[in-house]
Amino acid sequence: MSTTADLVVGVLALQGDVREHLQALAACGVAARPVRRPTELDDVDALVIPGGESTTMSKLAVDTGVLEPIRSRIKAGMPGYGSCAGMIMLATEILDGRPDQQSFEGIEMAVRRNAFGRQVDSFEAPVTIAGVPGEPFHAVFIRAPWVERVGDAVQVLGTVADGPGAGRIVAVRQGNLLATAFHPELTGDLRVHRLFVEIARAAR
């Protein structure tokens, strides 16, 4: 184990690609652990909400009682990063969601579920992300959402360059919260996770 692990980052482990986020965070040199219960949330400095099915995560977050504690931690400034379903879970407004769908209400934005289409429309494309140095990020979009509207406090970090979804917002930041419509955890490219770890370190 690395002794430089000064930061503990949780990954919400109700459902989804939890392992991939845990591995990416560990590769960034932080202690990463799954969070399913309110008590486990107390032990982390920051939280990643993984890719998965947002309606399932919403229901399990309510059933397990972890919804309100995460909402209040986020309101109190806990750094958070959400990919795909995680982006939906961080939004203040969900479009094309279930009527009873809940979120952590962190980033002032309206996110449309499955906006790019069904699985046959899932795609890979390069995305230039502000704050991520080097080549454009090779982004993997799976039944992905996009951001339809953002509040004044939200910084747009990246949009789709080409194709049917050209110009759509797919990466945003508001304070200590970061969200992408795509899945850096599936690519082995750690730059987005490194950006999040920087945000989390600065917030301590």
């Binding site: 989804g16 998965g52 599936l186």
Partner: peptide, 8 residues
Amino acid sequence: GMAEMVKG
């Protein structure tokens, strides 16, 4: 990747 998203 689609299958990764239904894990758990």
